[in-house]
Amino acid sequence: MEIVVCIKPVPDAETRLRANPAGTALDGEGVKWALAGYDESAVEQALLLKEANPGSRVRAVSFGPAPRTEEVLRAALALGADGATFLEHPAEVVPDPLLAARAVAAHLGRATWDLVLVGKQAGDDEAGLFGGALAELVDAPSFGGVMALTYDASARRFTFRRSVEGGAEAAEVPGRAVLALQQAWNDPRTAKLPNILKSRRATIDKVAWATTAGALGPLGTPTTQSVGFRLPAPRSGAKMIDYRTPEEAAEKLVRLLQEEAKVFP
């Protein structure tokens, strides 16, 4: 089975968020980029499938600016991916998940594959658009919020659970599908030290932006533009509830939530 896992670098969880001088996006200065969250789960899922289905190969694909995009590909190689493709994009921030989907679709069009795995959404823009858009562009079925994925080789069919509001659904889909994975249902492995060293020397296939842009034509233009990035204003402190008995505290709080804050469910 040929598995493609699409990943992207996101700011490390501990990044102190700050707007860029223009106030239009995150300030990338000093940000530590990492393979994180949903994407990490996606790589783990790809490796679990590969291990369960001997002869399978995992290729990591990422679209974005150097060097951070190459770095997450190396992280995927260190975790156990067999190959990596770097689709270069010149912008500091990839402007649009749809553009990323078009770029990857243009690349995948030339490759044979059975399954594309992506994270349900990325930890930064949280758009969650990439998987569905990619699936549409390569004319494959797609599902999001996927967990506990298995492959029935004789039927060439994937079965999985899918996280939805208030529970989960069981679903299945035949091969050549795009599945967007839920975070943290699996316990992503840590790369082994010798594999990290090996991944530094591995070759990453690079596709120049000019090649991708040529393939996309007018669709290579972003359809959205980030024009603002704001951090929440600090709060001024709590309204403290006076009470004589716990019951009184409970009654007062519930009333405030109903009548003043209007958030009582």
């Binding site: 990492a34 190396r74 030290l193 990290i196 530094r200």
Partner: peptide, 10 residues
């Protein structure tokens, strides 16, 4: 080096 940074992160 990038390699050292990855070891450190790991």
């Amino acid at each position: 080096t990038e390699e050292q940074t990855s070891l450190q992160e790991m």
